[in-house]
């Protein structure tokens, strides 16, 4: 019974990993830009949710879309203000630029909100429910469902719509896309906006059950990187598979071997996958 609960918890955590990695897949995978500020995007979204709830008294049904909107704008601004220029340089410039951006976002937040930990009331979405002897937190279940919905939605957008084709065309070959009449800048700004908006949804949902502090992004970012890389750059379903896999493996390792070693197993698995499939689980060779 306990084991079933362990696996279930792992699955739900994995869904959260997938959720906050989906935006990164879009940005990193499609545009080949590493965003070191990704964790801090999540953090900003959590503060948007917090402020919306405490100051404006908005419930989750409002603050999740609000966070998505705010982050969409942040993404577009960051693209036009920084990324567009940085992309002209080598990959190192992206590391430099987004790392600097991460520091600015993190510590501007500390400046405004102080280093204190805050949180949303834990049962905004209702109390724990027991189902067949398994305990389920509504907020985590909602986050899990959102992860699945976002993944399917993004995948459909990219593979089934004209807009998606254009996004992919720009990602594939910028100059070729220009030749067929696609203006790359608005497309890439849109990709950044969408990626950041997904991150916004993720952050606002995570805020429902996690603590909020300016440093919170740091602890989440590394896992997102591993999820995206393991799943294969630019593969939205890959991020979901990788997120769930990592969540369940972490949970089982923590339970059987000890929580101090969970990342050993995750990183070792990650390296092993790279050895046999250098393009990630679902990435294209």
């Amino acid at each position: 019974m306990i084991l079933a609960q362990v696996v279930l918890n792992g699955f739900l955590v994995g869904a959260v990993y997938a959720l906050f990695s989906s935006g990164l897949t879009l940005i990193w995978g499609m545009m080949n830009v590493v965003n070191f500020a990704h964790g801090d995007f999540v953090m900003i979204a959590m503060y948007v949710a917090f402020v919306a709830f405490t100051a404006l008294h908005l419930g989750p049904a409002f603050f999740v879309p609000l966070a998505a909107l705010v982050l969409f704008m942040l993404g577009v601004v960051v693209y036009y203000g920084l990324v567009r220029h940085v992309m002209r340089g080598p990959m190192l410039a992206q590391i430099l630029g987004t790392f600097g951006l991460a520091l600015v976002l993190r510590y501007a937040t500390l400046w405004i909100f102080s280093a204190n930990f805050v949180s949303l009331p834990e049962n905004l979405l209702g109390d724990v429910v027991t189902f067949a002897g398994l305990r389920l937190e509504p907020s985590r279940v909602v986050a899990g469902i959102a992860a699945l919905t976002l993944t399917v939605g993004l995948h459909m957008l990219l593979t089934r719509t004209a807009l998606g084709s254009r996004l992919l065309a720009v990602a594939e070959d910028r100059s070729a896309a220009m030749l067929v009449g696609i203006r790359p800048d608005p497309m890439q700004a849109l990709a950044w906006g969408l990626g950041a908006a997904c991150t916004g949804v993720a952050g606002a949902l995570i805020a429902l059950f996690f603590y909020i502090s300016p440093m919170v992004g740091e602890s989440l970012a590394l896992i997102a990187f591993v999820v995206v890389c393991l799943g294969g750059f630019g593969s939205v379903p890959g991020a979901l598979v990788a997120g769930l896999t990592i969540g369940i493996i972490e949970s089982l390792t923590s339970f059987w071997i000890g929580p101090a070693f969970k990342d050993v197993v995750v990183f070792a698995l990650f390296l092993a996958v790279l050895w046999f499939r250098p393009q990630g689980l679902l990435g294209k060779a």
């Binding site: 362990v6 990993y17 996690f210 602890s219 000890g258 101090a260």
Partner: peptide, 14 residues
């Protein structure tokens, strides 16, 4: 023993 600042601690509790 566990690593500080984890994203999830449910395994320890279980």
């Amino acid at each position: 023993p566990y690593a500080a600042n984890s994203a999830d601690v449910s395994a320890q509790v279980l």
